[in-house]
Simulated scan of single mutants.
Amino acid sequence: MSITITPDGTRLFYKDWGPKDAQTVMFHHGWPLSADDWDSQMLYFLSRGYRVIAHDRRGHGRSDQTDAGNEMDTYAADVAAIVNTLNLHDVVHVGHSTGGGEVARYAARAERGRVAKVVLIGAVPPVMVKSDKNPDGIPLEVFDGFRDALARNRAQFYRDIPSGPFYGFNREKAEVSQGLVDNWWRQGMAGGAKAHYDCIKAFSETDFTDDLVAINVPVLFLHGEDDQIVPIRNSAYKAIHLVSDGTLKTYPGLSHGFFATHPEVVSADLLAFARA
């Protein structure tokens, strides 16, 4: 397995496929999943001559099940560790959900020349949780419910999310893919409960406003209009106004996990942006 060891000794698993001198696309997964969530997009870009990279965030997948550092500053530093190890430049970074927050924080702080473009898919920025500064956000009690469900019966909770709101399979006439549900559960259960518990705070309470403002490369926002996990009105509709060079594309009727349910649509849009 390909492993990077971070300054605090955490071992991070990553995949690195394709020509080492080709344009690189790096994928960042959502909570509580792993690099495997990007298999379709990685194969798509690989077949078109790109170098593709995806890692398991600390505490997720095949990376160490850390009990510390499960917050956005460390996630971004971990990305930098992989980028530095592989000596990557001019990378297109693609992040979904929590991974979108990770990308925003990393891109805002990255060394000059490391980042070419950014794609945020169903991403959590600018901030999810309701507060005095964000009065139309999601109440903290919702995320407390996530933590309680994870602590009580993580295995069942990780069945309920993908079979319901994540892919929109709870909608009338939805075409349910049991394979997607099972794969979500498989990825989730491979990670560590403590890291996943801590990550709920990271994705829900981190404010990425300053990060979005600081990003100085083109940013593409892709978002399902029926996203029940990261509602578009609380995220992309706000975030697009904070970046200096942003484009927003929305998908009527599609869910939070729409890049998995409709890979042929999303991959084509990603390729067009990467080539532009």
Rank of each mutant, 00 (worst) to 15 (best):
R154P: 02
C199G: 14
T206C: 10
A214T: 02
F221R: 03
A202Y: 09
Y167C: 02
C199D: 15
W184T: 05
E172S: 07
L180F: 12
Y158I: 09
F169Q: 01
G164V: 00
S177N: 13
A155K: 06
M189V: 05
D210H: 03
N170V: 05
Q228R: 13
M189C: 08
R171N: 15
R186V: 08
D210Y: 00
E172N: 13
P165R: 04
G168R: 02
I215S: 01
K173C: 08
A193E: 08
P218C: 10
I215L: 11
D226Y: 12
S177D: 14
N216T: 13
Y167A: 05
F157K: 01
N170Q: 11
I161D: 00
N153L: 02
D198Y: 01
A195M: 00
A174F: 07
G192L: 07
R152D: 13
R152G: 10
D226A: 15
H223Y: 06
F221G: 00
V217D: 07
A193W: 01
L180C: 11
L212P: 09
I200Y: 04
K201G: 07
I215V: 11
K173P: 02
Y167S: 01
I200L: 08
R171Q: 15
D198L: 04
D207A: 02
S177A: 08
G224V: 00
D182R: 06
D160G: 04
I200W: 11
Y158E: 12
R186P: 04
W185R: 14
S204L: 00
D210E: 15
V176M: 04
E205S: 11
A195H: 03
V217G: 04
I161M: 07
M189D: 07
E225M: 12
W184V: 06
N153Q: 06
E175S: 03
E225V: 09
F203A: 05
D210A: 15
M189Q: 06
Y197M: 12
R152V: 13
E175H: 01
G168D: 05
V219N: 04
R152N: 12
T209S: 13
G191R: 06
L180S: 01
F208K: 00
N170S: 05
V219A: 04
V219F: 13
N216E: 12
R159L: 03
S204I: 00
H223K: 09
I161Q: 05
A155R: 05
P162S: 10
V230L: 09
Y197K: 02
A195G: 10
S177M: 09
D211E: 09
R159K: 11
L222N: 06
R154C: 05
H196R: 09
G188P: 00
D210F: 03
L180T: 08
T206S: 14
N183H: 15
Y167Q: 06
C199M: 14
R152T: 14
H223W: 13
Y158R: 08
A195N: 03
I200Q: 04
E172Y: 12
E225Y: 01
V176R: 14
D210W: 03
K201M: 09
V230P: 03
D207H: 02
F203I: 05
W185T: 12
V230R: 05
R186N: 15
G192P: 06
